[in-house]
């Protein structure tokens, strides 16, 4: 009896300390439970800080630029001569070059991308798709500098055999190569949109006697239109922001023209030229880099917001 009660009290003491210990470790655990989300929140906030950083840097330096060059002169000027004795800072030649190169790229990537998407989503067998898709992904994984090299050393000389008046640097060749680069992006986004169309709709149309082609044009594409348009807009945004291909293959002439055989400069290529040219900090040229980058940033931002708006607003829900 006495032995029993002895062990009992000892046990109680042991259990009590165990409870105490467990409470202590529980407290530590709970402290962690409370602080860790806060730490994670701070880190998650860092990504927001990147945006703030980009906007802040661009806005402050752009304001500095507009104190030297008027906003109207910048946005309506058709002449860009940053290095001349009496420099002129019209951004229109750069916007012109950007739009033309993107347009050429989209003329290639748009039709080919959507036809690729149709083939992969509607016609290809599982086996064909398994072979073709990784190849397209490979195309998307090639660094842009490699495309630039390809445009400059292969595509331009090739085109010059057919178009003798084509310059050694021109906007046509980088535009075409940029189009090839964007095909995988448009194809894969459009294919996602087409695959999301329920099979019941396909089967319904096929059961009514439509051919696959008719199903594609009358059922699938209308149903997936929002996704397809969104992929186009994202493709344009990608083309606008593309830098190395146009920098290498289109040269640095700031021509304000519609002639695609001539050298033109895009906004991105101008930033590269000025930044690589070691413009002294504080000079007007240096600040012009930020004004152009700001314009570029706004262009792509609008495109990205538009793409999201289109795919959300006009989505057909099934």
């Amino acid at each position: 009896m006495s032995i029993n009660s002895h062990t009992n009290t000892q046990d109680t003491v042991r259990v009590k300390t165990l409870i105490e210990e467990s409470k202590d470790s529980r407290k530590l655990l709970m402290l962690g439970e409370k602080t860790i989300p806060k730490v994670l929140f701070v880190v998650a906030f860092l990504s927001l800080l990147t945006t703030v950083g980009i906007v802040l840097v661009l806005v402050t330096e752009t304001i500095e630029f507009f104190e030297r060059v008027s906003v109207i002169e910048f946005f309506t000027g058709t002449v860009l001569r940053p290095l001349s004795q009496n420099p002129e800072f019209g951004v229109l030649p750069l916007i012109n070059g950007t739009i033309i190169s993107s347009l050429i790229a989209m003329l290639v990537a748009g039709p080919i991308g959507i036809m690729t998407a149709v083939f992969l989503s509607e016609y290809a067998s599982d086996r064909t798709r398994r072979v073709l898709k990784p190849m397209l992904e490979l195309l998307a994984g090639i660094p842009t500098i490699v495309y630039g090299f390809f445009a400059f050393t292969f595509v331009t000389p090739l085109l010059r055999q057919f178009i003798p008046e084509l310059g050694a640097t021109n906007i046509l060749s980088p535009g075409l190569v940029m189009g090839i680069m964007i095909i995988p992006m448009i194809a894969s986004l459009s294919e996602d949109a087409m695959s999301a169309v329920p099979n019941a709709m396909r089967e319904g149309a096929l059961a009514l006697g439509a051919t696959k082609l008719e199903v594609t044009f009358k059922v699938i594409i209308p149903a997936a239109l929002s996704g397809i348009i969104a992929s186009f807009v994202l493709g344009i945004s990608r083309a606008i922001g593309e830098t190395m291909i146009v920098t290498i293959a289109s040269g640095s002439s700031k021509n304000f023209t519609l002639d695609v055989t001539e050298s033109m400069q895009t906004m991105t290529a101008y930033v590269v030229e000025v930044a690589a040219g070691d413009a002294p900090a504080g000079s007007t040229i240096y600040y012009s880099l930020y004004a152009v980058a700001m314009t570029l940033f706004l262009f792509t931002l609008v495109m990205n917001i538009l793409a999201r708006y289109v795919s959300r607003r006009f989505r057909e829900e099934y």
Partner: peptide, 28 residues
């Protein structure tokens, strides 16, 4: 949703703009 939209937008910013950010903040 602000954080998510922000990440989506950041993914669409041209790489050269990051270069300008890096040049201004880290280098200079």
């Amino acid at each position: 949703s602000v954080i998510q939209t922000n990440i989506a937008n950041l993914a669409g910013v041209p790489s050269i703009v990051y270069g300008i950010l890096g040049m201004t903040i880290f280098v200079r």
